[in-house]
Design a protein around this nucleic acid. Structure first.
Lengths: 213, 213
DNA sequence: GTCTATAATGGGATAGAC
DNA sequence: GTCTATCCCATTATAGAC
């Protein structure tokens, strides 16, 4: 009997995990397309191919669902960008960082937009995360950069403003892709355009840091 | 009689102009704080100190009101940034451009946020404007830069990406000020911080363009 | 031109049958 | 765990008195 129960529980857990994933992915797409408030649970249900009541079965409220979506994005953000390693030196680390950030914009447009919307709307959930994790990350990176500066591997730069600029320049290709497409006169951004963005941003950053290109 | 009528009309026009301005300014603030969709006409009415029906008297629909707000912002955007002049040279023009863009972020935080929200939400009204005016502006600036490059006053740069980066770096201080404040560990952005941003962005741009600082 | 009261709609959430 | 039907509330918009 207890074995039968365990099997049932496993099945239930599996169904739950599968449906939650389905809903979260559908929600991310709809939130990105429609904006956080304009999005209705009905739209998410339609996108997921489920009746609306099921959305509320898996996520108590729309707010809970949004926070779950944001949670996935924030975890992704934290894991998809490498930390600086002193031994690798500024050129390799900055190259990798810029490449990864642009690739993030390229491969996770929806996630980036939802994050941007939440940030511009000052969602407490996102601000809390920034305070908790991002400030700490930045501090580590700053210390590495300062050692590079001391050791004459690069010129001194205001580290906070450098990172603010790096995020702005890389994420703008996802968040404001509509504007970018208009300016580049293209219906879609292709690999070459992202590569051009990467190269240009690297050139700027290397130039200001006094790193030979 | 016709004179009396004219006087009345003038008064009416004055009242209309005054109230429209009051509503537009209130709406910009609320749209920036709450987001475009979360904002209700009731909130705008409260912010303006008027009953809700008056909002609809002056602006048929919420959509009309949003477009009127965006219209003011777009006009401001177009007028508050100087065009490049060949004779002034790259250093003076880029300096002025960056300063003006940062000052725009500093002095019109709400306008910048509403614009960003409309852009991320791909409001047709804003996209149309970008296609109509911005692409043309950019083309003029590109031509000037290309002449500077030909005449050896600066190194060649991919002009579209340069402008995308310039807008991203300068507007991020308004649009994502919540993030900037967290990273700079400050409750409010002060003049000194905006000056630091200006200096750093100028350094980056001069460096990549090969202009002596 | 101003304002109260209300119509009309749409959306979040849930009860309860299956 | 799924889904239909429904409740309830917030919101846009307007009618109509002043």
């Amino acid at each position: 009997m207890s074995e039968e129960k365990r099997a049932k529980d496993q099945l239930k857990a599996h169904i739950r995990a599968q449906n939650e994933k389905l809903i979260l992915e559908a929600a991310e797409r709809v939130f990105a397309r429609q904006g956080l408030t304009k999005t209705t649970t009905q739209m998410i249900a339609d996108e997921a191919g489920l009746p609306k009541a099921n959305i509320h079965y898996y996520f108590r409220s729309k707010k809970d669902l949004l926070e779950a979506v944001l949670g996935r994005i924030l975890a992704l953000w934290l894991n998809s960008v490498s930390q600086f390693k002193y031994e690798d030196g500024p050129k390799a680390c900055l190259t990798r960082y810029i490449s990864e950030k642009i690739e993030q914009s390229q491969n996770h447009v929806n996630a980036s937009k939802v994050f941007a919307m939440a940030l511009i709307g000052e969602e407490p959930y996102v601000l809390e995360y920034l305070r908790e994790y991002f400030v700490g990350e930045l501090k580590k990176e700053s210390e590495t950069i300062e050692r590079w500066v001391e050791d004459g591997l690069m010129k001194p730069v205001p580290v906070e403003h450098l990172f603010i600029s790096l995020w702005a320049m890389t994420q703008t290709y996802a968040d404001f892709d509509a504007q970018v497409k208009i300016l580049l006169r293209t219906p879609e951004l292709d690999d070459e355009m992202y590569d051009d963005a990467k190269s240009f941003i690297k050139r700027m950053v290397f130039a200001v840091c006094g790193i030979d290109d």
